[in-house]
Design a protein around this nucleic acid. Structure first.
Lengths: 211, 211
DNA sequence: GGCTGAAAGGGGTAAATCCCCCTTTTTCTG
DNA sequence: CAGAAAAAGGGGGATTTACCCCTTTCAGCC
C-alpha cells in the first residue's frame, strides 16, 4: 500500500519538480497537484482524491496555506499537512503550526530530508527540524508581546504610512487632529518607538501595512 | 552530445527537484548544483565544470543572480544564463536581462515550458514568455525614471529609514546636519515626495532598504 | 445610581522637519 | 586650463511633530 501525496503550490514548476522527487521515493506516489487551497478543497470533495499527506505551500493566492490547513484539519482530521515554504517569518510558521500542520519544511532542505520528513510524519505524526524546534521554544518563552491594537488604531497606522500630515489623517478619519495625536502618542508608548518612522517600520514588519 | 546544465539556487530542494526534471529531458543532463553565485564561480574555474546553460535563481545570499550573471557574461560569454525566479519585480527582471540573461522563467512555469525554453535558447539564443516580452516593451516606453542615486545618497536614505533624527544621521555619516538637509531636499525634489515617510516608502519599494 | 476606564478632544511648548535661497569647495569634462 | 556641475555647508522662517498634562463624554459593570 503506497502513501498518497498531494502537492499544493502556485509555483507550478516547483510543484512538478517535487512531484518527481516524491515519486522517486519508494512507497510514495503523487495523486495530483494544486495551485491553491481552493482548488485543493474542490478536488477533495471526491473521496478518491483524499490523500494521506498534503505538502502545502504557505504563500498562495485565493486561499493561502494557513487558511487551507485550518479547513482541512477540521474537515479531514486524518489527513496530514506538511508545510513547505521559503518563508522564515516566525509569525507565519507559528500560524501554520497552529492551523494544524504537522511539520514545516524550508524549501532549502535536502532531498533526503524530504524523504525522512515524509516517513517520520507517517510513523510519529510530526516532523520538525532543529530550526523549527528552536523557534517553538522561543515562542513559548516570550508569550507576551500581546500588544492588541484596536481597529481604529490600525486604520490610523495605515494612514500614517502615507505622506499625509496628521491633520489630513484626522480629516480622512473624521476625527479631530488632537484625537489623532492622542492615538499616535499612545502608540508610541505601547510600541516603544520615538517617531513616525518607527511607526511605519512597525506597521510594515507586522504586516499592518504592505508597501 | 548532450547539453550540460548547471542549476544555481539556494532553495536546495527546488534545485534538486529541477535537476530531476532536466535529467528527464532528452539531450540534457545536470552537471552539478550550486547554492549561490560564489560557489558557481569557484566551480567554473575548472574547464570541465563549465556548462552550456546555467539556470540561475535571482535571490541568493553571498553573490546574487544579477551580479553573478554579469561576471559570467564577461568571463564565459559562450555560456547561456537563464534566469529562474519567483520575483516579478520589474526592476529585477530588467536588471537580470541587462546583466546578460538570455531568458527569464517564472517559477510557476509548466514542466513542458522549461523544456521548450532550454531547447529554444540553444537554437535561437533567447527565450522570452509573453509576460516578459510585454514588460520589455513597457520598459522602452517609459525609459525615463532614470533617477540615478549616488552612494552617499543611498547611505543617507538607509539612515533615514530609522528612528534617527537628521542631526544623528549627520553625526553617523560625519557630515554637517545642513549637508544632510541638502541631501534630503534634493531627494524630495528628484523623487517627487513630500516628507520623510515618502522617502522611507520609496526606499522600501525600490529595495534600497529592507525592513 | 455611581464608579471606572477608555475614547475623544484639547493647550502649550520644545524639537524636528520642511522649504526656500545662498556661498564655498571639489570634481568632472570639453 | 577654464567652465560647468555637483557636493558640501549654511541662514532663516513656516510647519509639523513630539511630548507633556488636562477635561469631557460615554459605555460597561458592580
Amino acid at each position: 500500500m503506497t502513501t498518497k501525496v498531494v502537492i499544493v503550490d502556485d509555483h507550478f514548476l516547483l510543484a512538478q519538480a517535487i512531484q518527481e522527487l516524491v515519486n522517486s521515493f519508494e512507497g510514495f506516489e503523487t495523486l495530483y497537484l494544486c495551485k491553491n487551497g481552493k482548488e485543493l478543497l474542490e478536488k477533495m470533495k471526491y473521496p478518491a482524491n483524499v490523500p494521506d499527506i498534503i505538502l502545502m505551500d504557505v504563500n498562495m493566492p485565493i486561499l493561502n496555506g494557513i487558511a487551507a490547513t485550518k479547513i482541512i484539519n477540521e474537515t479531514y482530521p486524518e489527513v496530514i499537512v506538511l508545510a513547505l515554504s521559503v518563508e522564515v517569518d516566525e509569525d507565519i510558521i507559528l500560524g501554520m503550526l497552529r492551523a494544524g500542520a504537522k511539520g514545516y519544511l524550508m524549501k532549502d532542505t535536502e532531498k533526503e530530508q524530504l524523504k525522512e520528513a515524509l516517513e517520520q510524519v507517517l510513523k510519529e505524526g510530526y516532523y520538525h527540524t532543529n530550526t523549527i524546534a528552536k523557534l517553538l521554544v522561543g515562542s513559548l518563552v516570550k508569550t507576551k508581546e500581546g500588544v492588541q491594537l484596536k481597529d481604529r488604531e490600525l486604520e490610523f497606522i495605515k494612514h500614517a504610512c502615507t505622506e499625509m500630515t496628521y491633520r489630513e489623517i484626522a480629516e480622512a478619519m473624521f476625527l479631530s487632529p488632537k484625537t489623532i495625536e492622542g492615538y499616535r502618542d499612545s502608540l508610541y508608548e505601547k510600541l516603544h518607538i520615538k517617531n513616525r518612522i518607527g511607526l511605519v517600520l512597525y506597521a510594515i514588519r507586522h504586516k499592518i501595512f504592505v508597501p
